[in-house]
């Protein structure tokens, strides 16, 4: 079923290009932050398809680590966007 996996990788690459367009074009900083978050999630899916394609299960370790780091980074960017001490 290699053609299926190749098509899947192509679709994820197209989605990533759309995200990169929003990162480059986005009029405000939160636009870019949303696109970065979405790009991280897409990369997790990409790693899963790579694990399926190659049969190497260490790609799943990369996916888990990427999801963790992406979440922490997004939270840090969000607190930076709030800027001042809005702790409710």
């Amino acid at each position: 079923m290699t053609p299926f996996e190749q098509t899947a990788l192509a679709v994820l690459l197209l989605s990533s290009v759309l995200c990169l367009f929003r990162i480059g074009r986005g009029p405000t900083a939160p636009d870019r932050t949303v696109a970065i978050d979405i790009l991280g999630t897409l990369i997790v899916g990409f790693c899963c398809i790579m694990a399926l394609l190659t049969g190497q299960e260490y790609y799943m370790n990369i996916a888990i680590a990427w999801a963790l780091i992406s979440f922490v980074g997004t939270l840090a960017l969000a607190k930076y966007l709030e800027g001042r001490h809005y702790d409710a």
Binding site: A29, P30, T41, F71, A78, L81, G83
Partner: peptide, 25 residues
């Protein structure tokens, strides 16, 4: 990984939108 993404992604989006609103977008 699926459970983790299902738990964390909405939280991240909520935080970004809150930050966007409070920063004046």
């Amino acid at each position: 990984c699926a459970v983790f993404i299902l738990l964390t992604n909405p939280v991240a989006a909520h935080a970004i939108c809150r930050g966007a609103y409070l920063s004046g977008v």
